[in-house]
Nucleic acid binder design. Structure first.
Lengths: 340, 340
DNA sequence: CTGTTAGCGCTTTCAC
DNA sequence: GTGAAAGCGCTAACAG
């Protein structure tokens, strides 16, 4: 490793102090234009590069922010990240992405790693609402490291969040199915310890209620966001004495599984059964039988998350105010649920 | 920001030196068990947490490695990353993911950001082979920061790489189509400045040659890895006087576009036209008309990349030896190309 | 086994 | 306008 040039090297060369060099490089107004120019010139001549670590150690700021998501290989999360990047890069921040793969253990590990790396903030979508070991979060809050939740949040004092109105999403999806003439609508739900899934479920229920359709507990099944899960749970639904004529899935992946299973059973979509998913993953549009879904404007969500973070670090105020932004989801009706 | 406790604080409390505390925390064998225990206890009692920045500044190691990919929202790259993480986490490293979105400018920016963040190495898949401004890479090599290319490489002295045998991939895909009885095989190629695409193309060509099928330049079209691109280029192919009876696409996304277009034109798959993609993205399996593709074992690739990096940092040897691992791809034949 | 001391590279008072 | 000096938190060489 060739010795890196430091401000001392360039100071020596110019017969001035390191302090002056530092000031010059930071464009301190007290330094004469002449010196500045000289410093800049020699610096680049010597291939000088600032050591961010030293700077960070001194200033206590690393200009790194951590983003924690369950996984990066879903269009939803990668789009949110893209949104975050677009807002943060221009401000000089760098983004460190971590995945939890829905494992609580990794979630905690990631937070700690990021803290160790002295990130200036953490933007995250929790995978596990239970995470009783609130210790980690309290730690964050105590250390005054800005924490912002997006999409999947947890209610913690002083912590802001940006989510979508999942209740509305569930409500719209279900209402749409009712408008298409469906009477027995099943719901592939998911871990309702997570607010997002609980709210989609509640929206579904409310839509039924508002349309005088009896709520049937047996039509609601917990299903993880996997194709295979969608298939299996749908198989069970189809075997019922009184099977559903529509399925509202809390995930596009399980919706896809549902569609596969329905087709295999010989039923037609949307004539016999309508299907609506959630998230508007790109494949829903690609499919020959395109899948209706709920768009969550992930890019927008990412941008807002980033701006909230920037606001927090900018504010001098000691008393942080908790903000909760809620985006409105949009139903995208496609072939899988359009009978007309 | 509540003042963080440092080793000095705990040293003072115990009436010993910071050095001793440091040694105790690092499990230095020269420290008595008693002191160690005492230190550990008070440390956790005081909520002490190591400042990685200081440590990094001192040791010159940050235990962060940067991973640069064109994008994270393709299963291929996210799987490679997963593989990298699985090998690196146990070794105490942390992974910083950056996306270039195929923009050369971002590519350079990312490298510089990572260098500034003092990463211990960079693992990357280049987006743009031209990147004439070799300066950045030379910089890396000069600074002796381990650099390893995966999937998309560039030939640079002293830089190792791990790729798949794209020639073989192209060859197998094409041979398979020939075996299915196809005689006029088109190829949706891509920017052949990138080795991967050049090699897939060359493999395709060789397979034709070996089977006495005339190579027809007009059947090869440059197509970016997008669904829409696949559609458009396929439309042109179908309009030819002598249209193809098979398409080998260098990307699953353009293969999907090709399939959509073919169906729309009223032709049947695989009866009239067979299609094979590349990468084995999950959706190829999901489709009702599942798409044949070439699997690149991305997880494996990630793991090997990580291990190469670990080897490099472990080796004391000054003279780095360039290693080039080449994985063998596997053809996965599905409905889109199985006539039987 | 533990203390002393110096230094990683940079910033920032406090002087002059 | 610039220099001197201290310190961010940690580690490591040297000494005892």
């Amino acid at each position: 490793m060739t010795k890196k040039t430091t401000i001392y090297d360039i100071a020596k060369k110019l017969n001035i102090t390191a302090a002056t060099v530092s000031r010059a490089l930071n464009n301190n107004p007290k330094i004469s234009e002449k010196t500045k120019e000289l410093v800049f010139k020699t610096a680049s001549g010597m291939n000088y590069e600032q050591n961010k670590l030293a700077q960070a150690l001194k200033s206590g700021k690393s200009f790194n922010v951590g983003v924690i998501v369950p996984r990066i290989d879903s269009n939803f999360f990668s789009s949110v990240i893209r949104g975050i990047e677009e807002e943060l890069y221009p401000e000089g921040y760098h983004v460190i992405i971590c995945q939890t793969h829905d494992q609580q253990e990794l979630e905690i590990k990631n937070i700690n790693s990021l803290l160790n790396a002295q990130v200036d903030g953490i933007l995250m979508s929790i995978s596990n609402a239970k995470l009783e070991k609130n210790a980690v979060f309290n730690n964050l809050v105590k250390k005054n490291v800005p924490l912002i939740f997006f999409d999947r949040k947890k209610d913690i004092k002083n912590v802001s969040s940006i989510t979508i109105d999942d209740f509305k999403g569930g409500y719209e999806a279900t209402s749409h199915l009712i408008q298409q003439g469906c009477k027995r609508i099943a719901h592939l739900s998911n871990n309702r310890n997570l607010e997002i899934f609980k709210n989609r479920y509640l929206g579904y229920k409310q839509a039924l209620l508002d349309n005088n359709i009896p709520f049937d507990e047996s039509l609601v099944v917990e299903t993880f966001s996997k194709v295979i899960e969608g298939r299996e749970k749908t198989r069970l639904l189809l075997q019922m004495d009184n099977p559903p004529d529509a399925i509202f899935s809390s995930s596009d992946f399980s919706a896809l599984g549902a569609i596969e299973e329905i087709k295999e059973s010989g039923l037609r979509i949307p004539e016999d059964i309508c299907v609506v998913g959630f998230s508007n993953e790109p494949f829903t549009k690609f499919m020959e039988l395109s899948i209706s879904s709920i768009d969550q404007s992930p890019m927008e969500m990412g941008k807002i998350t980033a701006r909230m973070f920037l606001d927090e670090v900018a504010s001098e105020v000691k008393v942080k105010l908790e903000k909760h932004v809620v985006l409105t989801p949009t139903l995208i009706a496609r072939k899988s649920s359009l009978k007309i």
